[in-house]
Design a protein around this nucleic acid. Structure first.
Lengths: 182, 182
DNA sequence: TGACCTATATACCGATCGGTATGGAAACAA
DNA sequence: TTGTTTCCATACCGATCGGTATATAGGTCA
């Protein structure tokens, strides 16, 4: 199963072929279909595994004491995943949600829905930060949350394109230097 | 030709099928191959057209008087392209450079090379901004350039995912609020 | 040993991929 | 009118796509 995740992560939903998936998983196509139904539900299970194993840092990041701590943990956590030497580079959600033919639109919608719910949690955390005095009054939490997600997604594109880790660490430092509030 | 650009832009290199391309262009496959050689060289020509018609704002953006002006023109210019109602959403370079199978690696390399040369121009502009006093001394131009490209690429992902224009305009405002220097 | 049952592996399905060969209509010269 | 040339649309090529039917191998019980 985690072998399937690796393939989807590297190739995206459409770029991952049944041949590559079955070869990586060490099973044959009929076994795959008996166990998982079809490619789409296999992808959903891989996405679940990805969230559980790789996106777990988000939950703890939101528990950081200050808004700056939240941002730092989110950025460093996602960088750690996206440049792990044993995993594909970049973010699986970004890779599978851009481009592709018309067939995979429901896959795209699935990813966008998950992203939306994650964004909502971040907005709520930043709202709390504002009432706690972590953020200046002129900053709108939804806009700041959108900004932070954007930096993370941009970093995912860069990581996927092979930009080395130290450059991305400098990027994080730069972002945190400009962060408004505590 | 611009019809081909639309298809590649929406689908990415691999997601664009010959059937969709020829139908959009109003010609048949033999004509396409007689005129353009093959899919890959057609894509390169589409990329040339994209740079010429859609990325022309970059050149004028780099001529803005201050570093903040450069950032603002780059962000607003790319947003204008990525959310134009007559064109596909998002950035063609991002869409075609993530994911995909192993066949299209040379396409990916092509895009990354163009991105690198564009980044170099931005770094040079920010170096100049620093000697002109537009930027604080603790800011490294390469890191800031990387940061700005990252925000733009993240914005491209968001635009491609259907985030509405006004949200992205707020994102730009937020980014500019935090911009260091003039 | 022999009947049965499960489970995997090979071979195959129609559709589509990128790319090309062929046939037939239009344009021209004599 | 006839022969020739050009050009494009249809039909086709092998390969691969996601998905499945069939056949064979291995284990269980009598």
């Amino acid at each position: 199963m985690s072998a399937a995740l690796q393939v989807f992560w590297r190739r995206g939903y459409e770029g991952a072929s049944l041949a590559e998936l079955t070869e990586a998983m060490g099973i044959t196509k009929p076994s795959l279909y008996a166990c998982f139904g079809n490619k789409e539900s296999l992808f959903r299970k891989a996405l679940d595994l990805y969230e559980r194993d790789k996106l777990c840092y988000v939950k703890s990041a939101l528990e950081a004491p200050t808004s700056r701590g939240v941002a730092e943990r989110l950025l460093r956590g996602s960088l750690a995943i996206q440049t792990n030497s044993t995993d594909p580079k970049g973010c699986m959600g970004v890779i599978s949600s851009v481009g592709g033919t018309a067939h995979s639109e429901c896959i795209r919608d699935e990813i966008l829905a998950r992203r939306t719910s994650s964004d909502r949690a971040l907005i709520e955390r930043l709202e709390r930060a504002r009432v706690e005095g972590d953020l200046p009054d002129h900053i709108e939490p939804p806009a700041l949350a959108c900004y932070l997600s954007t930096v993370m997604q941009g970093m995912a594109v860069q990581a996927g394109a092979g930009v080395p880790v130290d450059r991305l660490e400098a990027l994080i430092d730069t972002t945190l230097t400009m962060w408004p509030g505590r």
